[in-house]
Nucleic acid binder design. Structure first.
Lengths: 404, 404
DNA sequence: ATGTATTCGTTCACGCGCTGAACTAATGCA
DNA sequence: TGCATTAGTTCAGCGCGTGAACGAATACAT
């Protein structure tokens, strides 16, 4: 039940119906491939005759290919199977972290063709400069008709994932505390140097996009979920009905700086007891040392020691888990997502996190459904950030057309 | 950029384009009435010829009427002006509160034709019984071809606004703490007795719906906002891009039970320091008494005394305002709404609330845009709950058709 | 008073795209 | 070999946006 925005709407034209149905078909093939035209018609509850021109367009465009026919178990003509062609289009994926920047090339199916990691330059201009040198070198090897491996690939653009707040529309980095950058026009600077379109997004949203666009629906459990990234900072990417929740000025999801305990530890943002100050990696390390743990460089180290039986480490992580769970409970009360993904180094100790998180959820939420919200660890957030960068580029290909 | 849900989608048919454009026209007329076909064509950037059949359908259906022509300031044929006909359809609006239940009849423009208030019965069955008696008596006077005032009106259904958590889809009241009701199939019970469709929603969402559907866009400041209801309980209705955010199991917006201060006062839900426990009416009264204020029955009384110069009352309300502001800051960080409406008895003392709320927002949020989020008092929340009940019934008439 | 420019609303031929019936192709089974 | 069954295509029909053309209504200049 959506109200039409009378200051920003899209009228339907002659081709709108076709645009809508074409995307439905594309997504159905993506989800159920390999699949026949007849099966698509049944799922869409339309006549088979509609599928003929729709599929023809997708095949002509190169988005879909006819696979072999299936050994039919029943009588009748064997169906012609269809599948999406994800290896035709590739995207440059750039994941900027505090220490290292990953540059990768991946196709729209999320398969990484090449990857390299370099230290993150200290300034935005140095970053752009570095990328302007390395990215073309990377793409030259895999893109174009004369790629060494013979595959003919098209470069669709670049996705840039940043640790910090980003205004997706203007392409500006509003504030990246871990890098110390503020109000930088990074997207356009890079786009100008590379000569093609660049899309920018923050890390938790990118991870959420990777889940949304590059994972079959059957595995994601719905189109409403939250991706919580726990590392130095704590950020959230919220997805509601298949769409990222961005907020009026593109800063929705800054749950990391919701103050959950006024008497808690101070946060980098100036307040006390922010979620990030309670369960971010800095907080975990500080608590570990306060408990008398031997000097540790990183949360990964604490996790290793916990698994090796270090009591202080176990207690520390258990306590962090409770703080994580309380924040998740707040998020569940506010958003009621269908599922929560948790990413970050600390999730390597999921067997220690699982219990306290669930306990906090049960204690702090109001309905049985909310208490039962699945919380799933993301074992490989670095990978998801890279895939998120790909999703930034690939999403428009698969997204529903805007109507109304 | 929405992903198509492959398990729940709508294919476009021959009539989809028309359906979409008809609703766009209807909404444009609603927003800009009186308006001519030519002006509509310009705003939609389509040919004037399209408006002829579109408007004809709306006029035939009775949704739109041709008004008089305008005294044209410029040359040429005078435009035929169009306006929506909101007085044709009426809705029964039922607002259930802890003490009193309001039954009203209003047209789709939000104009109340009749209204009565009765004590709220103690049980769901008694409520349904009471409504089954009174509602038909009310509608008989104003609905049908032989209404006493001669207007021919159609009853479109009933809207039921409840204090508590509601699953809109199943129509069940999940939990209404102030009434002590749990898991009641209220919507269907009432629908069966009344013999027509009943839609149910909780109070804050209803107020948000009233803002969204029954106020011109020009006055609402966007399609993304939050309505915060502060009375005995604290609830929030969230609207994102013209659509209410409901969450996976229809419990999104339960911000009242986000714990903002672990060492705060106990809450009815069992936790400590929930937003509701910090700034709900009960918390305000308790704090007033702790400050040595004379016994007071209600927050309205405290507000009156504050305005009369009672120092303890002023301090109490100022402190409540700070708690309100901190909760709003959390909400702004999480959702980043374009505007926040605040409803509740305490808003009568807005001149005392304004400052501390803004101060807390400035202190507790991260970006200038977030700090500048407009916070607007709703002077008449009782009215908005009733209008919200109307909006529940009226919304499908004006909503964008689901596509994709 | 008359002619002209201008704006509004409608009509109509055209083309895009869904719809359902009819048809061809391919296959398994009696 | 014939028949039933399933897949995919073709085609006439119809809904609906599109743009050109046309009539209606009005202000202004002459």
């Amino acid at each position: 039940m959506r109200k039409i925005n009378t200051r920003n709407f899209r009228v339907a034209t002659r081709s709108t119906t076709r645009d809508v149905n074409r995307q439905i078909v594309l997504n159905l093939i993506r989800e159920h491939q390999p699949i026949s035209r007849a099966e698509l018609a049944r799922r869409m509850e339309v006549s088979r005759s509609l599928l003929t021109p729709l599929v023809r367009e997708l095949v002509t465009r190169g988005a879909v290919v006819e696979g072999g026919t299936l050994r039919a178990p029943q009588r009748g003509r064997r169906p012609t199977l269809l599948r999406v062609r994800t290896n035709r289009h590739v995207a440059v994926a750039i994941d900027v972290r505090q220490q290292r920047t990953t540059i990768a090339l991946a196709d729209f199916g999320g398969h990484v063709l090449a990857r390299e990691a370099v230290p993150t330059p200290g300034t935005p201009t140095a970053l752009v400069e570095m990328l302007a040198q390395r990215v073309p070198a990377l793409t030259a090897l895999h893109v174009g008709a004369d790629a060494p491996d013979g595959e003919e690939r098209t470069l669709a653009g670049a996705g840039l994932v940043m640790p910090g707040m980003v205004d997706r529309r203007t392409g500006r980095v509003l504030y990246a505390p871990r890098l110390g950058w503020r109000d930088v026009d990074l997207r356009d600077l890079l786009a100008e140097r590379l000569g093609y379109k660049v899309r920018i997004e923050n890390a938790p949203i990118a991870c959420a996009l990777a889940r949304l666009w590059l994972t079959p629906d059957g595995l994601t459990g719905g189109h409403s979920f939250a991706y919580v990234s726990i590392s130095d900072g704590v950020g959230v990417g919220l997805v509601n009905r298949g769409e990222v929740l961005r907020g009026e000025t593109h800063t929705a999801g800054e749950f990391g700086h919701v103050a959950l305990d006024r008497s808690g530890p101070p946060c980098v943002c100036g307040k006390r007891g922010c979620w990030e100050a309670l369960c971010g990696d800095g907080a975990t390390l500080a608590r570990y040392h306060a408990r008398g743990g031997a000097p540790a460089e990183s949360v990964e180290e604490v996790v290793r020691r916990a698994r090796a039986g270090d009591g202080a480490a176990v207690e520390t992580i258990t306590e962090t888990a409770t703080h994580i769970g309380r924040g998740l409970a707040a998020m569940v009360s506010a958003f009621n997502p269908g599922r929560i993904y948790v990413g970050g180094e600390i999730t390597a100790a999921w067997e220690l996190l699982d219990g306290p998180i669930r306990r906090a959820l049960v204690e702090d939420t109001l309905t049985d459904a909310a208490r039962a919200t699945p919380v799933v660890p993301d074992r490989n957030p670095a990978e998801y950030r890279v895939l998120g960068a790909v999703a930034l580029v690939a999403a428009p290909t698969y997204a529903a057309p805007r109507v109304g």
